[in-house]
Design a protein around this nucleic acid. Structure first.
Lengths: 209, 209
DNA sequence: CCTTTTATGGTGGTCTGACCACCATTGACC
DNA sequence: GGTCAATGGTGGTCAGACCACCATAAAAGG
């Protein structure tokens, strides 16, 4: 007859969300400790932990032993990992994954060529100069990955960008490694981008599956 | 120095996945009880519960008090709910959402017109006949929703379809209600589909935000 | 005075045991 | 044969205990 038919741990998740909003907590900020939440919400610590563990698996928070629980910047890594391992069973699913990623890339680039600004070009130019200067292989990979991400980000749609990131991670869990452009292709891509030639940009980025 | 630096509840999730694979459990099947998992995996029941609650929040399993824990068919409802409430804070995010959904719809339709088969047309025709016969408002909404879903599904890419579903649910949590076609528009849409006229199909489906 | 070391309190991580509410089945009763 | 109560299994929740880890403060050393 009471109001709360919801499970306690789901209620706690909502309360935590309320706390975040009321205290205006941002990514990186510390949440109240498990024991404090236990006292404030009048529930058992195990229920608090069930709520926190769920949010952790979703990638929304991060717990550091001996320190506390912290809000994570919104990326769906863990989520992807779990969903991927549960969902990517059959061949059809993998094929759909590749097709979808290809489509999302195309969508991003089409928006990108419309929305790219001079300062974006300048930034990418700087990256390419760094890429050409770099001697170390590991640094090179880092830079090229950042270049690719930056190109996708030009779509100026964070949700679409995140979809790309998640699909890339899905793919990673299938292929075990990611595909990077060569340094020469980066400067080619930038040229096409400057010319508004979306077709060739898409063709290049589609290699980065 | 041991192998397991991972948290116990994450290990348990992996073990559960293994159990599902080895026993070839399908959606709807029952998982071992919490106490049995406790014994089999040599861990505490609270850790087992942390794992199960996490999977429940992800929408991968369902627990029924007094009965047991069951595997759910893969849909991301709860996930969407949680992510939406946590992520959809600012106006930009909502704008990105609408744009992304619009793009995904376009992608689905473009694939759909390439892949639609005669039997699909026949099925949609049947739905339209039902829609025209129906008198009850609630039945009508159900049918139109199924029609819209069926059209999206024609893309024959389950991942893309699920993205659409999730984005629709996101949108639902913003708008509090969904937008349906009118019954007349359904038959118009089917005509365009038969003619391979993706532009007009996209235009109609884009209203269903 | 400053640096290093040690002690301490707070934090998450895990396990155990207990009790409750709920459900399905069984078996006694009518 | 049908009805209903007892029973055992299940998830739901709580309380307490102990451990490992971290940051800080206090004490020791230079």
């Amino acid at each position: 007859m009471s109001g709360t038919s919801e499970k306690v741990y789901v209620e706690i998740i909502k309360k935590i969300k309320t706390i975040i909003e009321e205290d205006d907590l941002q990514a990186g900020d510390k949440l109240p400790s498990e024991r404090e939440l236990t006292d404030r919400l009048h529930v058992g610590r195990s229920s608090v932990r069930e709520a926190l563990r769920s949010l952790e698996l979703l990638g929304l928070i991060e717990t550091r032993r001996g320190e506390g629980t912290f809000i994570k910047p919104a990326t769906g890594h863990r989520l992807v990992e779990v969903l991927a391992s549960f969902i990517l069973h059959d061949q059809k699913a993998r094929q759909d994954l590749l097709e979808t990623k290809s489509i999302i890339i195309r969508d991003c680039i089409e928006l990108a060529v419309q929305r790219v600004r001079p300062e974006d070009i300048e930034y990418l130019n700087g990256l390419i100069r760094e890429i050409e200067r770099t001697k170390h292989e590991s640094d090179l990979q880092q830079l090229i990955l950042r270049f690719q991400e930056s190109v996708i980000k030009l779509c100026n749609n964070h949700l679409l960008y995140r979809l790309w990131v998640e699909l890339s991670d899905y793919g990673l869990s299938v292929h075990q490694h990611s595909f990077l452009l060569h340094s020469g292709e980066c400067s080619q891509l930038l040229e096409h981008l400057k010319n508004g030639d979306s077709k060739n940009v898409i063709q290049l980025m589609s290699q980065t599956m």
